[in-house]
């Protein structure tokens, strides 16, 4: 069932987009506004708590999650430009708060969480017009966006609306890029081997842009490609979509 088209929605930047990819966040906000949604960006955003949660430090994760929850009092959708953080808030908050006083409140909150492309496609059913030059891109499907959150091809559906964008499939599209949060520094060698392979696979597609929906993957893959001196550009899908639909 598609929820009714809401006039207003919250935007949650996520720590990595906030700090490393603010343009992507801005583009996500613009895409929503363009679709007629009034965007509320609450002050006081930090982190969804996933790093601590994944490492088993649930009390610390809960403390942080509580402060974030308080930012979204109204019964409005909460939109994140990250599949991983959306998965955390949607699927793991109920786990994290299981047996806690806020449990019921959390369940209601989690039901309002969306990843950006999910919201654009499944709720807003946006129509995009491609104003850019022909370009070949490739898509890195973030593990958490697909396996945890359960994206079902929404990003690809948006890209398919762009007439002059050719999507080249990445070899081993669903294999992890090796980020994994603290994994990248706790197991640097394996993580490094994974991201180097991902960078090589991306280059082999012949695309000029690698797109993804997750700050972590973007940071990781971009770092590896830059290290190689690769001309490949790495971009968050929101930023790419905004650029394509707005001639500058």
């Amino acid at each position: 069932m598609t929820p009714a088209r809401p006039p207003r929605a919250y935007f949650y930047a996520t720590c990595l987009v906030d700090l490393f990819f603010p343009d992507a966040g801005m583009a996500g906000i613009q895409l929503l506004r363009q679709a007629g949604v009034q965007v509320i960006f609450p002050e006081g955003q930090t982190c969804c708590g996933q790093p601590a949660f994944n490492c088993g430090y649930w009390e610390e994760a809960r403390d942080v999650a509580r402060t974030q929850l308080a930012l979204f009092p109204e019964d409005l959708p909460v939109i994140l430009p990250s599949g991983s953080c959306a998965g955390m808030m949607k699927n793991h908050y109920p786990e994290l708060f299981h047996g806690q006083p806020e449990e019921a409140q959390i369940k209601a909150f989690s039901g309002r969480v969306y990843e950006l492309t999910q919201f654009l496609v499944d709720v807003l059913d946006v129509k995009l017009e491609d104003l850019g030059e022909p370009v070949k891109v490739t898509w890195h499907s973030s593990c958490h966006a697909v396996r945890d959150l359960g994206l079902k091809g929404e990003p690809q559906a948006l890209l398919a609306q762009l007439a002059k964008v050719e999507l080249a499939t990445l070899a081993r599209e669903h294999e992890c890029c090796g980020f994994g949060g603290t994994f990248s520094v706790r197991q640097p060698e394996v993580s490094g081997a994974m991201v180097c392979d991902k960078a090589a696979d991306a280059e082999a597609t012949g695309a000029s842009v690698v797109l993804s929906t997750d700050g972590g993957c973007l940071l990781n893959v971009k770092g590896a490609l830059d290290q190689k001196g690769s001309p490949l550009k790495v971009q968050h899908i929101a930023e790419f979509l905004w650029e394509r639909t707005h001639a500058r």
Binding site: A13, V17, D18, L19, F20, F21, P22, D23, G25, M26, I29, F41, E43, Q45, S184, V185, P188, S191, G192, V195, C196, L219, N220, K222, G223, A224, D226, Q227
Partner: peptide, 28 residues
């Protein structure tokens, strides 16, 4: 620390000049 391991295989991640929060604050 931490960066040392990261940069063995990747360039150093550099934060944007202004965070999204800061930009949204300015906008507001």
């Amino acid at each position: 620390p931490l960066l040392r391991d990261w940069t063995r295989f990747r360039t150093k991640p550099v934060p944007a000049r202004r965070s999204l929060s800061e930009r949204m604050r300015a906008e507001r």
